[in-house]
Design a binder for these strands. Structure first.
Lengths: 213, 213
DNA sequence: CTGGTTGTGGAATGGATCGTCCATAACGTA
DNA sequence: TACGTTATGGACGATCCATTCCACAACCAG
């Protein structure tokens, strides 16, 4: 009996995300979002509550997506390819940053930086996301160890934390202004220094094989 | 002949920094700063211009301090101690994040995240800072290589970029909610995986010697 | 076709915030 | 001691922004 919505919720959230991503939480006005989505303020508030709730929604979806990308890249597959999956993931993250010419960075980092201190919801969600990524990386590192691509004496938990740090760090230094080529190199270097199979060393200064990513 | 200022400029900037640090650029009101510093708005505007100029001042000073800390820890000293200087620096940065119970993070990262996209001055200053840190790290890595603490076949430029990424990443994952102990471990792991002297491996899972930092 | 219910969008509201203004205070000089 | 100059700080004005409100539109059951 009621009048149905004339907008696609997913699409509206997408536009809203673009706005928050581009100008941060405090920096975007609800008018901006209204203009960007084509919705009136009434519809916006009716559908999503207030600005805070809308941001939580967008932020939460983003966090979910971040974990899903990692899952897609890392989960499921033979141990023999675990190392390649790890390398692919790290390179993908570096490429994302390197090709982010607008220097928008990652909404997760941006949102956490701006709000995690003031907004427990944001803080909690970003912490959850980190833990999820950590688990995915640890599992994959263990797999690579079983196949002998990573020194089995190393603690997978610690290596996972290091890789997560590198991935998040790449995003940070990218936003801080390091050149795209440098960013890409960092991913290679990080992978190269991971302890290889027993006693062997990976090429520490090796170039990333063309087309691997 | 004129009436002299009744406030200490350095101290006012310090208070202003606390505010910006705690609540970000958009999140702090000039009234907050006035209250925090005890100055009236007239004096504030008379002495520092507008909010943007004041922030640039604070941000710039912070960047200078970041580089100075690194210089203090890294520069000058025999090659034989270069490795220890590097380790000390990385541990110091990790400790800063680990003990930052308020999760304020680093003003450099926070400011860059919030503004580098909109404010060329901030973007430029943060990029400069990254380059300066990179140079310091590279120099020190070269020194450690000369003394045989780091594989001389490795590219110091690349290792420096990796270390910088780890340092900035530690700050990011710390703010994102990783546990302090994990943060400390990351610093250890990062140092452990750096390629040791020719063919040898550093203890990849080794614990940080007590009291080294 | 009609009424009830919900969506829509723009105008209005109320509070907050940046920056200015000005009367006054404090200082050095003559 | 009197004067010119600059600092001070609180009140003020103009703007901005999140949220609410309301008149109207669209839909569907009966």
């Amino acid at each position: 009996m009621p009048r149905p919505r004339a907008f696609d919720e997913r699409q509206v959230l997408e536009r809203a995300r673009e706005q928050f991503w581009a100008t941060g939480y405090a920096g975007t006005r609800m008018d901006d979002i209204a203009r960007a989505t084509g919705l009136g303020k009434g519809s916006l508030y009716g559908a999503f509550g207030d600005k805070g709730k809308l941001f939580h929604r967008v932020f939460g979806d983003w966090c979910t997506a971040v974990v899903e990308v990692a899952e897609g890249r890392l989960t499921g597959g033979p141990d023999a390819e675990a190392w390649e999956r790890l390398a692919g993931y790290v390179h993908l993250m570096a490429e994302n940053t390197a090709s982010d010419t607008e220097r928008r960075g990652c909404l997760l980092a941006k949102g956490a930086a701006e709000l995690s201190q003031l907004d427990p919801t944001v803080a909690g969600r970003s912490a959850e996301t980190m833990t999820a990524l950590l688990t995915l990386l640890r599992t994959e590192i263990s797999a690579a160890q079983r196949h002998g691509d990573i020194d089995s004496a190393a603690d997978p938990e610690r290596l996972a934390a290091l890789l997560l740090t590198v991935v998040r760090g790449i995003e940070a230094v990218g936003k801080a202004g390091l050149a795209p080529e440098t960013v890409r190199d960092i991913a290679d270097t990080a992978l190269a220094v991971l302890p290889g199979p027993e006693g062997q060393k990976r090429r520490a200064t090796g170039r990333r094989p063309a087309g691997e990513s």
